[in-house]
């Protein structure tokens, strides 16, 4: 764990990419992956599939945003979705808990199964599904309530805690698991919005943990945070990966390299339809990519 944290200080590649310069970007990422892999071995077991995608496509009205995506996401591993802006990462991620249902005119084709169950099936209740597949958003979105109530909201509405003491235990446990307890234990009644951005994001993670999901989806969870807060979330993700299946969308390749075991690279062509270009163990994808386009992307030659 600590080793990982030290490697994160050399965030060269990220800045290079965002400013459009490419010098040495790929090399840095490679070093990061190697260091991260050395620090905590990447989990590349393919025994247990958590989420399986088969020829998944997504349409927003007449626009095909994602096409023909097939791959398996493995249990208790962290999978990163990377790719240039607009390639359909968020779109794909939001299929996993059927968040796209809420956008009128969206259509999903193909099959997605969670632990063997086709979640697009007519008899599957999206509301139930979302309990098992939690989601953390790009912008921290605490509810306009106290810290405590932010955590209690889900369990209370879903009837997960029988008594007040059970609820208090659940609140503490969730906050501890989200590495936030020590910072907020004395101000549980203060509004969630009074926390810093990074704390708010961890509050949102704790909120998700409180309803005990199996899979946690994160859509660029650190993009609104400063480097220190980002590191805390990344550490947290590594810890959570012991018990949860995590799927994370990120623009930051260093981050993908550090936190993920598997990486999927998506790319959209002229017609703005995203396709899966490569899906491999993270180490392999960043050190010896199979596809030329992956290589170009991770070395910062476009995107």
């Amino acid at each position: 764990m600590t080793n990982e944290t030290t490697t994160t200080t050399e965030t060269g590649a990220e800045t290079n990419l965002s400013t459009g310069r490419m010098a040495g970007g790929g090399v840095d990422v490679k070093a990061t992956v190697a260091a991260a892999a050395a620090a905590s071995p990447k989990k590349t077991s393919t025994d247990q599939v958590a989420l399986s995608l088969n020829n998944v496509g997504v349409w927003y009205g007449q626009h095909e945003a994602v096409q023909g995506v097939s791959f398996d996401i493995y249990q208790r591993a962290t999978t990163a979705l990377i790719g240039p802006s607009g390639c359909g990462k968020s779109t794909l991620l939001r299929c996993f808990n059927r968040m796209n249902d809420l956008i009128p005119g969206t259509r999903v084709t193909g099959t997605i199964s969670v632990e063997g169950v086709d979640i697009m099936g007519k008899d599957v209740d999206a509301v139930q599904l979302r309990r098992h597949v939690g989601m953390v958003f790009q912008k921290p979105n605490p509810f306009p309530m106290s810290i405590k109530e932010n955590i209690a909201f889900g369990p209370k509405r879903l009837g997960l805690a029988k008594s007040k003491s059970q609820m208090d235990d659940l609140i503490e446990e969730s906050l501890r698991d989200a590495a936030l307890w020590d910072e907020v234990k004395d101000k549980l009644d203060e509004p969630g919005t009074s926390l810093s951005g990074g704390q708010q994001q961890r509050l949102c993670i704790a909120r998700v943990l409180a309803v005990k999901p199996d899979i946690i989806l994160m859509d660029e969870p650190c993009s609104a945070l400063d480097p220190i807060a980002t590191l805390k979330i990344e550490d947290l993700m590594r810890t959570l990966a012991k018990d949860y299946t995590i799927v994370v969308v990120t623009h930051n390749m260093q981050q993908a390299a550090r936190v993920s075991d598997w990486t999927a690279f998506l790319l959209a062509g002229e017609e703005r339809t995203g396709r899966l270009i490569e899906y491999s163990p993270t180490e392999q994808l960043f050190t010896t990519p199979r596809d030329k386009r992956t290589e170009d992307y991770i070395t910062g030659r476009f995107g």
Binding site: N97, M99, L102, V127, Q128, L129, R130, R131, H132, G134, M135, F137, K139, N141, P142, F143, P144, F153, G154, R157, L158, C204, R207, V208, V211
Partner: peptide, 16 residues
């Protein structure tokens, strides 16, 4: 009311 907090609640498996 921002979309963010609605989605936050829905994503917890709380009904619409």
């Amino acid at each position: 009311v921002t979309r963010g907090i609605r989605e936050g609640s829905l994503a917890l498996g709380v009904s619409k």
